[in-house]
Each structure stands twice: as C-alpha cells, then as structure tokens.
C-alpha cells in the first residue's frame, strides 16, 4: 500500500514537473496548443477526400469510418501527449548517458522513464478527438449502447497497453543501437495507418497490422465495439493480445537494461 502511495506521488510529481516545464515558456505553450488543433484538422482531410467520391470503403460508411478516425485521434493524442515525449527523453538519455540518473533512483526504471515527460497541451487534441467521435455518432443518428460503450472503454485500456508496450520495445532497441530517432519516426508513421479501418488492408499487411503491429486491436476493434459490430471472440483476442504484448515488453525491457552502456564521461 505504501509502495502504491509512493508511485502515485511520483506520478503526481512527474506530471507537475512536466506542467511546470510546459508553462515555463509561455509563447511555446500557446503555439503548441494551436498546433495540436491544427494537426487534428489535418487528420480529417484524407477521409473527407475519399468519401467525397464514394459512399462506403471496405464496407465502412463515412460516419463509421469517422468513428475509427476519432478513436485513432484519441489514441494519437495520448501517444503525442503521454508517450512520445517520454520516448524522446529516454532516447536522448541513452545517447548522452543522462539515463544514469534515472537508473540511480530507488523506483522502477520503466515507470520513471514512462512518466518522465508529458505534454499537457495535448489535452486540446484529446478533447477535439472526443468532439469528432461525438459528431460521428451524431451523423450515425444514435449513441453507442451502454454495453458497447463499456467494451469500447475496456478496449481503450487494451489499446493504451498495446501502444505503451510497443513503445517500450522501441526504447529497448535504443539501449542496443543508441540512436533510434528514425525508429521512432517509423513507429509514428506506421501508427498513422491506424486511421483506416483494418478491412481497408489486404493480405500480409492486414496480418501484420493485426498481429505484429496490432493497429487493428488499437483502433478498428474499439471502434467496432462502439458501433456494436465487434464479436466477443475479437474482443477476447484484443484482451489477450494486450496482455501478451505487455509481458513481452516487460521482459525485453529487463534484458535491455543489461545492455545499457551509459556514455563516457
């Protein structure tokens, strides 16, 4: 219990520090906020272009696809606000050797690096994405059923675990190869494919996006759950997949720490 309280306090302190850092430079704070909203608007453009010419893509109508995009944007705002800043923090720490100080603290290193940095203005992005979701259901003419919403929220948790586990795997690679800036770009670029329902992809790509880089589990399945279209088998697959990825990530992280070479003085 004491341990839990310690970690809760740590999380609060890390978030407070990120907020203090964010407001330290006022101009930057407002600029980032405005940019967040701009990028959300940009996200919608490809969808609007495609659906201006046809009624449905791979069985998905415009409002249904909009649910996927909304969901994707919610996840992306979490990624940009809560995951990528910490990723950059670790990658830089590995390269410069300042990760030493993290490893010398009496708390779980994975927890510390995962909560190292947040970008608070991404909350705007998050709220904007929720607005897109609400608009999509408005276009559909009905709200998600309570049961579907519950499954959707549970899958949101699974999606976060998946996203986070994939990110830990990327960071673990940085312990070995040191410079992974491009790897994080690759990660973000692949994640971008999650804005499309999985049915849009065919063959190997579909398999990869379901099992290797489980975009389907992250965006399509939760969106299907909200739309009341997800089978319980798929929900189970998503849950199991999330747990499996988390276990693999933790294992790889522990192994990777051993390979940390620090940087010379």
């Amino acid at each position: 219990m004491r341990r839990l309280r310690h970690y809760a306090r740590l999380l609060a302190v890390q978030m407070r520090t990120s907020l203090t850092l964010a407001v330290q430079y006022r101009f930057d704070f407002f600029l980032e906020g405005a940019l967040a909203l701009f990028w959300l608007a940009i996200t919608l453009i490809p969808l609007l272009v495609v659906y201006s010419r046809r009624e449905s893509v791979a069985g998905w109508s415009f409002p249904e696809a909009l649910v996927v995009v909304g969901w994707f944007s919610v996840l992306k705002s979490v990624l940009d606000g809560g995951v990528t800043p910490s990723l950059n923090f670790v990658v830089e720490g590995v390269r410069k050797g300042t990760l030493d100080f993290v490893l010398l603290k009496p708390a779980d290193a994975q927890f510390l690096v995962s909560t190292a940095r947040f970008e608070p203005w991404r909350i705007l992005d998050f709220l904007g994405s929720i607005a897109v979701l609400v608009y999509a259901f408005h276009r559909l003419g009905h709200a998600p059923r309570a049961g579907d919403l519950m499954v959707g929220l549970a899958l949101f948790g699974v999606a976060l675990i998946l996203l986070y586990s994939l990110w830990i795997l990327v960071v673990s690679v940085s312990f070995r190869v040191v410079k992974v800036d491009n790897l994080s770009y690759l990660f973000i670029s692949i994640f971008d494919a999650g804005r499309w329902p999985i049915d849009v992809f065919k063959g190997a790509l579909r398999l990869i996006f379901t099992v290797v880089f489980p975009l389907a589990l992250m965006t399509t399945y939760p969106a299907q759950a909200l739309l009341g279209k997800l089978t319980s088998a798929h929900a189970l697959l998503a849950g199991t997949g999330g747990l499996a990825f988390a276990a693999i990530a933790r294992f790889v992280w522990k192994r990777a720490l051993r390979a940390y070479t620090s940087a010379s003085s």
Binding site: V13, T17, T20, L21, G97, D100, K105, L112, A263, S265
Partner: peptide, 21 residues
C-alpha cells in the same frame, strides 16, 4: 553530466528527488 532540470530552478529537482527517495 547533470541531473538538474535545465529549464527549471534547482529547487524543482530537489522536490523531485524528495519524492523519488
């Protein structure tokens, strides 16, 4: 190498270490 947070006053790092330990 330094553990002090570059953009914030040292007091913030002290507060953080207090929580960490």
């Amino acid at each position: 190498k330094q553990q002090l947070l570059w953009d914030l006053p040292p007091a913030e790092t002290f507060a953080m270490n207090r929580a960490l330990f």
